[in-house]
Write a protein that binds this DNA or RNA. Sequence first.
DNA 1: TATCCAACGTCTAACGTTATCAAGCTCGCA
DNA 2: TGCGAGCTTGATAACGTTAGACGTTGGATA
Lengths: 346, 346
Amino acid sequence: MRKTEPRIPTIREVAKLAHVGLMTVSRVINNHPSVRPSTRKKVEAAIVQLGYRQNEAARLLKGQRAKMIGLIVPDLSDAFFASCAHTVQHIARAHGYMTLVVSSERDADLEFQQAELMASRKVSGLLIVTSTRRGDDRLRELQNTGLAIVAFDRPLPGSDADCVLVENRTGAEEATQHLISHGHKRIACVGYDEETYTIHERVLGYTHHMNAAGLKPNIALGLLTLDGIREWLAEALAGKNKPTAIFSLNHRTSIYLLQALAEQKLRIPQDMALVGFDDFDLASIITPPLTTVAQSPVELARRSMGLLLERIQKTHDGIESSPAKILLPVKLMVRASCGPHEERPD
Amino acid sequence: MRKTEPRIPTIREVAKLAHVGLMTVSRVINNHPSVRPSTRKKVEAAIVQLGYRQNEAARLLKGQRAKMIGLIVPDLSDAFFASCAHTVQHIARAHGYMTLVVSSERDADLEFQQAELMASRKVSGLLIVTSTRRGDDRLRELQNTGLAIVAFDRPLPGSDADCVLVENRTGAEEATQHLISHGHKRIACVGYDEETYTIHERVLGYTHHMNAAGLKPNIALGLLTLDGIREWLAEALAGKNKPTAIFSLNHRTSIYLLQALAEQKLRIPQDMALVGFDDFDLASIITPPLTTVAQSPVELARRSMGLLLERIQKTHDGIESSPAKILLPVKLMVRASCGPHEERPD
DNA sequence: TATCCAACGTCTAACGTTATCAAGCTCGCA
DNA sequence: TGCGAGCTTGATAACGTTAGACGTTGGATA
């Protein structure tokens, strides 16, 4: 029973069946031009008849690249990145690629290790949401060996890789403006992980817009846990310039804030208005529905894959071209957490 | 610049540096016993000095299995499976395996295609959350070629693969009992996708417990969309035996129900009590916090990987052993969505 | 019909690894 | 001292594919 190995057909058997040489079969498979149509047809028939499939290992050994693309994200259990992974995979499959997904656990070293591992497996391309903030020549070296790399969500510092980013800054400005237009003047900006590019950009957008409106920015970063948020909130409420609105820098912070606000019996939006960056499944369902700045993981992944497939083609053909940059828009999802549109007394 | 190929060292160069034959190096790498310690040391030093790493492609070509494990889930963008994937990957990495994650899009044929693709890439093991309900010999054939397979979350019909399941039935019984103990008699059971094993089991648990308590089951399945839920709810409320409590069969349904109930201005738990199968991030944060039956994706993945690694070892050593079955407990997370514990009049 | 050209097909040699087999070495015992 | 026995070690031949060198064929032209 164990010895039922059904003999996977090789190119050799195809050649025998089609009465041609090995290389003819190889050329048919690789769409080489110089094969007579009649011969091609014979070979193709033999391929179908035997159910032949190329042996990747042998191709790899000959120096070809694998029909795989690698995807590195900071955290696969994050719904946003999971959604990206799903889309990437879907598109990759449609183009005959398998996807090697790994989570870098937000660790720059692990991220590079994984990238190198993928490179050593000869993936055709690499899609990466980096966790490095400092430039890293090591990835560049991989690029120089003919690996196509596209960064998305965050740019690869000091790299000339293609990248697809989101209008983080504009989104933050819109969120801030939204709160201002509801009459708020003391708007706090809360989040963690100031090292992350996206967060950094959002803070910049907030700060810029607050200053432009003549308001004083009030930024609290590094609040990683629910406890951190609780503490900050208690402190903020005790101060004399307590905020009337909060701009939350990301999904997780929004959730913690919701909990902390509920614990303090603060009503949204009456006692505290809230806008959060990142939309999430339940944002429209909770009470009150949360106004968010939505970005589309699907679109992000879609455009990134588009760029990657192009880049793989170019790299394959030995064409060098300047890196592409795509900037995707965000959308303010106005819900109830800032209340109806009205002026509010100081 | 493009020609900077830094010559990846081969086993041959290691051999030359260590002044030994090729095979000695190969034996050192594969932990063959018959290598003199002094020789081993020499070779290991050379390996470190050159930064040698095995070439997977060549190993594969020689018929070895890849240091990869495959994971097939119905939907990678589902938080539950994303979390599983994350854990699987983490453990796999710790054991030197990369993970090939794919989503089967809940399609049995695609699922098998992906499995075969992975098999042809010679993965060492396959972890699979199946979307088939009917027996499928094809996976069995893969097993017979020496591929270790472990099913989790759902059993592989007609297969003798190891599997790790969750106490779906018991969980549903506990949820039902919880509602009954709050005095509810008219308890509806709502969800979709009756074809799915887990849902089926939960319905069984609910039905069994309702019957045992002398209550009449009220089951609504096939409600895939928010609209479907809305419609069902309106109808249920219009009937004369309108339910006072709902047992939601999964995460998504719970969310839709929350929205539909809010639209109908029904208060939870006063007008309608609710228990949902599957815990989720915001369950404890929304108002009121939702009572759920929690299962742990992390534990599920952990145990499955444990089984898989064992099975890979056994398969490698040619040991056959009867399939293992693990049943994981669930936990009723009592929150506020069923109200305080009290009897309720009919 | 002979010659040349173009188009096409085949052969050979790798790619890096491991299984098999054969040979060398050391050690203990007669 | 000599000689198996057992432990190490090394040479060789695959694994399936592709690049490149090398033949072979057919037709067109003089």
